[in-house]
Design a binder for these strands. Sequence first.
DNA 1: TAGGTAACTGAACGACCGTTCAGATAAAAG
DNA 2: CTTTTATCTGAACGGTCGTTCAGTTACCTA
Lengths: 176, 176
Amino acid sequence: MRLFARHGFAAVSMRQIANEVGVQAGALYNYTPDKQSLLFDLMREHMDALLAAWQAEDPGGDDPRARLEAFTRFHIRFNTRRADAVFVSYMELRNLTAENFEAVTEMRRVYETRLEEILCAGKDAGVFTLAEPRITAMAVIALLTGVNTWYREAGRLNLDEVETLYWDMVRRLVEG
Amino acid sequence: MRLFARHGFAAVSMRQIANEVGVQAGALYNYTPDKQSLLFDLMREHMDALLAAWQAEDPGGDDPRARLEAFTRFHIRFNTRRADAVFVSYMELRNLTAENFEAVTEMRRVYETRLEEILCAGKDAGVFTLAEPRITAMAVIALLTGVNTWYREAGRLNLDEVETLYWDMVRRLVEG
DNA sequence: TAGGTAACTGAACGACCGTTCAGATAAAAG
DNA sequence: CTTTTATCTGAACGGTCGTTCAGTTACCTA
């Protein structure tokens, strides 16, 4: 994942990957049928982990505001800790076969829908004001994922401060 | 740019590029010293065009709210019309030499600063409420650029409707 | 029209690619 | 310890890569 993130899927050779884990290139084929499947497996595992982690962290209940704050903080924390996987899972979609692409994209859709449901619940409860829940969900995810482009662990702000800043933005965005 | 966006820089050969413009691979070297410079030139021209286009469209003046709306609409319109260039200029930064990377990144910083200045002006004028202008600027840009992941010309919403939806979100985000 | 210049071709170079596989090696089972 | 099974090596395969360049073609200038 690190090599794919740093150099791009096509620019990384099976020999480089093998060297990174201390074997010869041929040995990799005991674990993956080909290079493409290796990429797909990495992506699928990342998306699986994302969905499972949110499922474990979603407070549920009937307080959409609390759930949205939990989502905001979860998304930032999860994604900054796995920046390579996030980058690869978005950027290397084009290197997947049609059916593998569809599988990863479907998992992304499911994740978006998790957020959309929170937004709809808040809208129905009258605590959120939004015209297009699906678009707002994608906008919020783009906003939050953007943290990855600038956040560094050694930076001025720690993760909790970043979460608070972004929760403030997300809150305003949906409360009008 | 289309080939780089679709397949990735490393996955596109000089022979493919040459074929796309109807010459042999060798002829390309009358226009670029090597493949890397070709990528850099495409990126630099894109960033140049972005900065120049905003400079031409910025209403200026002392109405930060109007300027922010202009920025929002400009960014969406410009970026959706050049989706390939936007994608490449973000994703393929890693394929640049250190100095070329710095050059493109600097232009990106300038663009972010254009927005940051508007936010600061609004903050000083008391019409915007925000604690971290730089971070808010990057957050807004990430939010707006996210349109590219889902917007299609043939979709349900036309560009003006999308701009209005996002301006509504940006407005809330800064007005608190 | 003649001469010069810019652009392009087509072949070649060495290097590296993903993948395969016979044989060597290590680990597990009996 | 012997046999079986799982892993790994190292070489090889046919291809493709970025780049170069001598020679050809197309265009402009005088």
